[in-house]
Amino acid sequence: MAEQVALSRTQVCGILREELFQGDAFHQSDTHIFIIMGASGDLAKKKIYPTIWWLFRDGLLPENTFIVGYARSRLTVADIRKQSEPFFKATPEEKLKLEDFFARNSYVAGQYDDAASYQRLNSHMNALHLGSQANRLFYLALPPTVYEAVTKNIHESCMSQIGWNRIIVEKPFGRDLQSSDRLSNHISSLFREDQIYRIDHYLGKEMVQNLMVLRFANRIFGPIWNRDNIACVILTFKEPFGTEGRGGYFDEFGIIRDVMQNHLLQMLCLVAMEKPASTNSDDVRDEKVKVLKCISEVQANNVVLGQYVGNPDGEGEATKGYLDDPTVPRGSTTATFAAVVLYVENERWDGVPFILRCGKALNERKAEVRLQFHDVAGDIFHQQCKRNELVIRVQPNEAVYTKMMTKKPGMFFNPEESELDLTYGNRYKNVKLPDAYERLILDVFCGSQMHFVRSDELREAWRIFTPLLHQIELEKPKPIPYIYGSRGPTEADELMKRVGFQYEGTYKWVNP
Rank of each mutant, 00 (worst) to 15 (best):
A2I: 12
A2V: 10
E3I: 01
Q4M: 04
V5L: 10
V5W: 04
A6C: 08
L7A: 08
S8T: 14
R9A: 06
T10A: 14
T10G: 15
Q11W: 06
V12A: 03
V12D: 06
C13F: 08
C13P: 06
G14M: 06
G14P: 07
L16G: 03
L16V: 05
R17D: 05
R17T: 02
E18F: 04
F21G: 06
F21T: 08
Q22C: 04
G23L: 15
G23C: 15
G23Q: 13
G23H: 15
D24T: 07
D24F: 15
D24G: 15
F26V: 12
F26C: 09
Q28T: 03
S29K: 15
S29E: 14
I33M: 08
F34W: 05
F34K: 01
I35H: 01
I36Y: 00
M37I: 12
G38Y: 00
G38V: 00
G38H: 03
S40N: 04
G41D: 14
D42P: 14
D42Q: 12
D42S: 11
D42I: 14
D42W: 14
L43V: 03
L43A: 05
A44D: 00
K45H: 10
K45P: 02
K46I: 06
I48A: 05
I48L: 11
I48F: 02
Y49P: 00
Y49T: 00
Y49L: 13
P50C: 02
P50F: 00
P50W: 00
T51F: 07
T51S: 03
I52L: 13
W53L: 00
L55K: 00
L55Q: 09
R57M: 02
R57I: 02
R57A: 03
D58W: 07
L61S: 00
P62I: 02
P62E: 03
P62M: 02
F66I: 05
F66D: 05
V68C: 06
G69L: 06
G69K: 00
A71H: 06
R72Q: 09
R72D: 11
S73K: 05
S73H: 06
R74N: 08
R74F: 10
L75C: 04
L75A: 08
T76P: 03
V77K: 05
V77R: 06
A78W: 10
D79E: 11
I80M: 06
R81N: 03
R81D: 01
Q83F: 14
Q83R: 14
E85K: 04
P86T: 06
F87D: 03
F87R: 03
F87Y: 06
F88A: 02
K89C: 11
A90I: 09
T91D: 04
T91F: 04
P92Y: 08
E93R: 13
E93M: 06
K95A: 15
K95C: 13
L96E: 12
L96K: 13
K97P: 04
L98V: 09
L98T: 03
E99D: 12
E99P: 02
E99Y: 03
D100E: 01
F101Y: 03
F101C: 00
A103W: 06
N105G: 02
N105M: 11
S106M: 08
S106Y: 12
Y107L: 09
V108N: 02
A109F: 06
G110M: 02
Q111Y: 11
Y112E: 07
D114Q: 08
A116N: 10
S117E: 07
S117N: 11
Y118Q: 00
Y118R: 00
Q119Y: 13
L121P: 00
N122K: 07
N122G: 07
N122C: 13
S123T: 13
H124Q: 11
H124Y: 08
M125S: 03
M125Y: 00
N126W: 03
N126I: 06
A127H: 10
A127G: 11
L130Q: 13
G131N: 09
S132N: 14
S132A: 06
Q133G: 08
N135C: 11
N135M: 05
N135D: 03
N135T: 03
R136Q: 03
L137Q: 03
L140K: 00
A141K: 00
L142Y: 13
L142I: 08
P143K: 06
P143M: 06
P143W: 05
T145A: 14
T145H: 14
V146L: 15
V146H: 10
V146R: 14
Y147A: 13
Y147G: 15
E148F: 13
V150C: 07
T151F: 09
T151A: 08
T151G: 08
N153R: 07
N153V: 02
N153E: 07
N153F: 06
N153K: 13
I154V: 13
E156D: 12
S157I: 08
C158V: 08
C158M: 05
M159S: 13
M159H: 11
Q161Y: 11
I162W: 09
I162T: 13
I162R: 12
W164D: 06
W164Q: 05
W164G: 03
N165Y: 02
R166Y: 00
I167S: 00
I167D: 00
I168Y: 00
I168D: 00
I168L: 06
E170R: 10
K171D: 06
P172A: 09
P172Q: 05
P172K: 05
F173R: 05
F173Y: 12
G174P: 03
G174C: 08
D176Y: 05
L177H: 07
L177E: 06
Q178I: 07
Q178H: 12
Q178G: 07
Q178A: 15
S179R: 05
S180H: 04
D181S: 04
R182M: 07
R182D: 11
H186R: 07
I187V: 03
I187E: 07
S189E: 07
L190V: 14
F191C: 02
F191K: 00
F191R: 00
R192G: 11
Q195K: 03
I196D: 00
Y197D: 00
Y197H: 01
R198C: 03
I199K: 06
I199P: 15
H201G: 12
H201A: 05
H201Q: 10
H201C: 06
Y202K: 14
Y202D: 15
G204N: 15
G204Y: 15
K205G: 15
K205S: 14
K205H: 14
K205R: 15
M207C: 13
M207S: 11
V208F: 13
V208I: 04
Q209C: 08
L211W: 09
M212E: 04
V213M: 13
V213N: 13
L214C: 15
L214Y: 14
L214K: 02
R215W: 01
R215E: 01
F216N: 12
F216A: 06
A217W: 02
N218T: 01
N218F: 00
R219H: 10
R219C: 12
R219E: 02
I220N: 03
F221W: 10
F221D: 01
P223T: 14
W225R: 02
W225K: 01
W225I: 05
N226W: 03
N226V: 03
N226Q: 05
D228K: 12
A231D: 13
C232H: 10
C232R: 15
V233D: 04
L235Y: 10
T236M: 03
T236W: 02
K238G: 12
K238E: 15
E239W: 08
E239Q: 13
E239V: 10
P240F: 09
P240V: 10
P240R: 07
T243Q: 10
T243E: 09
E244V: 09
E244Q: 12
G245K: 10
G245H: 12
G245P: 09
R246C: 14
R246Q: 14
G247C: 14
G248W: 12
G248S: 13
Y249W: 14
Y249T: 15
Y249E: 14
F250E: 05
F250M: 08
F250H: 11
E252V: 09
E252M: 09
E252L: 12
F253H: 15
F253K: 14
G254S: 06
G254E: 02
I255P: 07
R257H: 08
R257Y: 03
